[in-house]
Design a protein around this nucleic acid. Structure first.
Length: 533
RNA sequence: GCGCUCGUAGCUCAGCUGGAUAGAGCAUCGGUUUGCGGUACCGAAGGUCACAGGUUCGACUCCUGUCGGGCGCACCA
């Protein structure tokens, strides 16, 4: 819709036209401050220019019903004809509403939590953010792949083996054990220790030389837990890449970097400082063991060799210092680091009824993602994370999302959708009759609601292009509000315009449902009262 | 110390590539259709947009500096 208007204006004025949403709907559907920017070169007052431009639209009425100049702004009101035709198209192609066909291959890597324990609440935020971007991109027709990088090499894997063994020795073999400074703890170790006992026998817990074996077996079990809990959040990955599978390519990749890699003090370094990093970094230690960075270098080389048009990484914000290193490596490898975009997901802190959420010892003093899903549900959790800018710290209260009233945004939106459904059922008019009716001849409020519902496509595009998924949740909240208000002001059933109004409601429902599905949330057909549960 | 980032209503946050009187939810106070689900709607109150400069016809938005919070500055991942 906006695109159409923008193209039309660009052709008419022969220049780029900034289109904005007027603060107040009484100003029209779209507005442009173009007269201000033309004022200087034409040496005329913006107000006079705007008036001249406005009057030049007099003969054209197919798209606009009015074009007005107000205080130098040019305000456009779309014609009912234009709106209703678009709405008709959307309702007869509901599966394609707001869809596009972008020809771009994107690789999106997110979560990538170490396979050493269950996901915590911080992981959940990155997971939801990534998956929402993924769904947006899919809807826009991008060829996008969701990938999980499994860090199944390095110290943390050794630590996993050690942690299981210690747990088993203390809790299964009833030995006295001394814990080292760092080790993993949490309920999940119990299940792993028990099945390890069955699979390997108890000897493995006392034989330190076999801890590696134990760890490599256990990380698959941990990944199962991880994948399962992501599935509970409606998040699925297309591909998994194991860090351990990459090191065999190290020599080749290192040579590929040419001067980007050099030897000093018996170690291999990457000359990342020349590419904007604070220092050069070690990639291979003196004893020949590669560092974590080496894995990422090989991994990113592999990503680029697979040949995508664009790459997106979502990392925890505490890794932001790492971006310049990986970008440096990408450039030394001969690729364009502008194609690699790293987005950050910030910390989360939780409250419950105004008090800091207690971490359970059982979980190893972290807030488990699965506990929060159990508490407020996957939909609410997804909605919260999607509705806040991912790169700023977030604090929220669980209690707010358990309420069954308009203070809970997810409830509020679902209620709007359910409300429409209820009224469609209640009416004696059939769906076919509704769809066959015309949306023309409605009043201003109805036209305004129609316009709101038709805004979804540009919201989706904007949300993805800016990587700000909260634009979609904001939109759904305001569309739901518009629906509730309209419903309150205007009686539907029994009205003269009942057929048309029902059709209008179907359109709103389509936008709500489509928008929710992109958030990974299924729109409900009816609300269940709490007391009915 | 250096780098990144944030600082908007009592609280949690929006504010599009600078543009028309700074927005929403919560909390507070007041009100509502003889009511298609009041699980909703309307209104009031509440802000020197951290502070100081600069650019501009116009700055919450861009630039510089100051103050304050978070994160990073590993041969850990």
């Amino acid at each position: 819709m906006k695109q159409r208007v923008s193209t039309l204006l660009r052709e008419k004025f022969d220049r780029e036209v900034i289109l904005e949403k007027p603060k107040d709907r009484s100003f029209g559907h779209f507005a442009t401050p173009i007269a201000f920017s033309m004022a200087k070169e034409l040496r005329k007052s913006p107000m006079i220019i705007a008036e001249e431009l406005a009057s030049s639209f007099d003969e054209d009425t197919s798209v606009f019903s009015s074009v007005e100049s107000v205080k130098g702004y040019l305000n456009f009101r779309l014609s009912e004809n234009f709106l209703s035709e678009y709405a008709d198209w959307a309702l007869s192609n509901p599966d394609n509403f707001a869809k596009q066909e972008k020809n771009q291959k994107i690789l999106l890597e997110f979560v990538s939590a170490n396979p050493t324990g269950p996901l915590h609440i911080g992981h959940a935020r990155g997971a939801v953010y990534g998956d929402t971007l993924y769904r947006l991109a899919k809807h826009l027709g991008y060829d996008i792949t969701a990938e999980y990088y499994v860090n199944d090499a390095g110290n943390q894997i050794d630590l996993l083996g050690l942690s299981i063994a210690l747990y088993a020795r203390e809790n299964i073999l009833n030995e006295n054990v001394e814990y080292p400074e760092s080790y993993y703890r949490g309920e999940y170790l119990e299940a792993l220790a028990k099945s390890a006992l069955e699979k390997f026998g108890k000897e493995i817990f006392s034989d330190t030389s076999r801890y590696k074996e134990l760890a490599l077996w256990a990380k698959d079990g941990v990944m199962e837990i991880v994948v399962k809990s992501l599935g509970d959040l409606n998040i699925h990955f297309d591909t998994f890449v194991n860090e351990s599978s990459l090191y065999s390519h190290w020599d080749r990749v290192m040579n590929k970097m040419g001067d980007g890699c050099y030897e000093k003090e018996g170690k291999m370094w990457i000359a990342s400082q020349a590419k904007g990093d604070d220092n050069d970094r070690v990639v291979v230690r003196e004893d020949g063991r590669p560092t974590y960075l080496a894995g990422d270098v090989v991994y990113h080389n592999q990503k680029f060799e697979r040949g995508y048009d664009h790459y997106i990484n979502i990392w925890g914000a505490d890794h932001h210092g790492y971006i310049s290193r990986v970008n440096a490596a990408v450039e030394y490898l001969g690729y364009d680091s502008n194609k690699l975009e790293t987005l950050l997901s910030q910390m989360v802190s939780l409250l419950k009824d105004g008090e800091p959420y207690k971490m359970s010892k059982r979980a190893g003093n972290v807030i488990l993602m699965s506990d929060i899903v159990d508490e407020i549900g996957a939909d609410a959790l997804r909605f919260i994370f999607a509705s806040k800018k991912s790169d700023t710290a977030l604090e929220f209260d669980l209690a707010e999302f358990k309420k069954q009233d308009s203070s809970n945004p997810i409830f509020y939106i679902q209620y709007a959708h359910a409300r429409i459904n209820t009224i469609l059922k209640k009416s004696t008019i059939t769906k076919e009759e509704v769809l066959a009716s015309s949306l023309k001849g409605l009043d201003e409020n109805a036209d305004s609601l129609m316009f709101d519902a038709l805004l979804l496509p540009e919201v989706i595009e904007d949300a993805f292009n800016s990587r700000q998924v909260q634009k979609l949740t904001d939109y759904l909240k305001s569309l739901a509000a518009a629906l509730h208000k309209f419903y309150y002001d205007c009686r539907i059933i029994g009205s003269e315009d009942e057929v048309k109004l029902l059709k209008l409601f179907m359109l709103v429902a389509l936008s709500l449902k489509t928008g929710l599905s992109i958030l990974g949330i299924e729109a409900v057909e009816e609300m269940i009262r709490e007391e009915e549960l």
